[in-house]
């Protein structure tokens, strides 16, 4: 079949962008959304024109690198499926398909369909981990974990970090992503020690970079990892508890970690003299 593509072209973060119209012929049903771009690019390169830049890597739905809006929907028409696994099957000959980068204030466009999602990593760097020094772990079996809890933790841990939830959200909120990590770690006994500091800090970063959740739930069908809204409930519950715990002084504030400064003032990355100060870790 022949498809008409309206593709967002933008040279770099500073330049204005615009849609450009291309035609790709000979598209077969099993071609994926990214392979459609491969076809277009091969055509452009053969004509000596610059190909469309887009992020991708594993092409099998696990790395979270791919992501683009297809006709206004994150990743494409199918629910719960990353772009690399979506096929063009649902389109018909002559259809116009619009391809745009993730739309979210926290994800500035880098070029064409490529955006900067480092804000997600800054949420993780604020506490989305368990602090255990290498070689300090006890024998694994000393920490039994209930099977259902392990499975629930796995459900939440399945997030591929693609950012579709943010792109889908009318508020540009990152609650689904943050909630998934908070719920994953809070589900496990290993995650209890830092549980409340973690959530306070992660939420602080999240709020400083992303919009706020008002329960539209548009993120859920967009999520390739099928993370559920329950993680947002989990996040809210833990956050409220954390505030109470903190007020009671049950958890003394850490002083060894610069990012906690954010809770009192500026974000940690601005304290790095080598950094551009625009929040990128590049």
């Amino acid at each position: 079949m022949r498809l008409i593509l309206e593709v967002w072209r933008q040279a770099d973060a500073a330049s204005p962008g615009r849609f450009e119209r291309y035609e790709v012929d000979g598209v077969t049903d099993e071609v994926s959304m990214l392979e459609l771009l491969d076809m277009l690019n091969a055509q452009l390169v053969a004509e000596g024109r610059e190909p469309v830049a887009f992020d991708h890597d594993c092409r099998e739905g696990i790395c979270g690198t791919c992501g683009l809006m297809v006709n206004g929907r994150p990743h494409g028409p199918e629910d719960f499926t990353p772009a690399c696994l979506q096929r063009v099957r649902t389109f018909s000959d002559g259809d116009v398909v619009t391809l745009e980068p993730w739309r979210a204030g926290a994800f500035p466009v880098v070029r064409d369909l490529v955006v900067d999602r480092s804000a997600l990593d800054r949420i993780i760097a604020s506490g989305g981990y368990i602090s255990t020094a290498t070689n300090a772990a006890p024998e694994a079996l000393t920490m039994p974990v209930n099977k259902h809890q392990a499975e629930a933790a796995m459900d939440h841990a399945a997030c591929i970090g693609c950012g579709a939830c943010v792109a889908a959200c009318p508020n540009g909120a990152a609650q689904l992503f943050t909630g998934a990590k908070v719920a994953h770690l809070a589900e496990l006994p290993q995650g209890q020690v830092e549980r409340y500091e973690r959530v306070r800090s992660m939420v602080a970063t999240m709020e400083s970079e992303f919009g706020s959740c008002t329960n539209y739930a548009e993120c859920v069908p967009a999520c390739p990892a099928a993370i559920g809204l329950d993680v947002i409930a989990h996040l809210n519950r833990d956050f409220r508890t954390a505030v109470v715990v903190q007020r009671r002084g049950e958890v003394p504030e850490r002083t060894d970690v610069p990012w906690l400064a954010r809770l009192r003032g500026g974000p940690w990355w601005q304290s790095d003299p080598d950094d551009a100060g625009d929040g990128t870790t590049r």
Binding site: I130, N135, A137, N146, A150, A153, M154, L185, E187
Partner: peptide
């Protein structure tokens, strides 16, 4: 042997038996 201990401590949700063992 150490890798499994370490990864467990870091929160890798390894599959579990009903008794809680890995």
């Amino acid at each position: 042997v150490r890798v499994i201990d370490h990864m467990t401590a870091l929160g890798v949700p390894f599959a579990r038996e009903y008794g809680g063992q890995i």
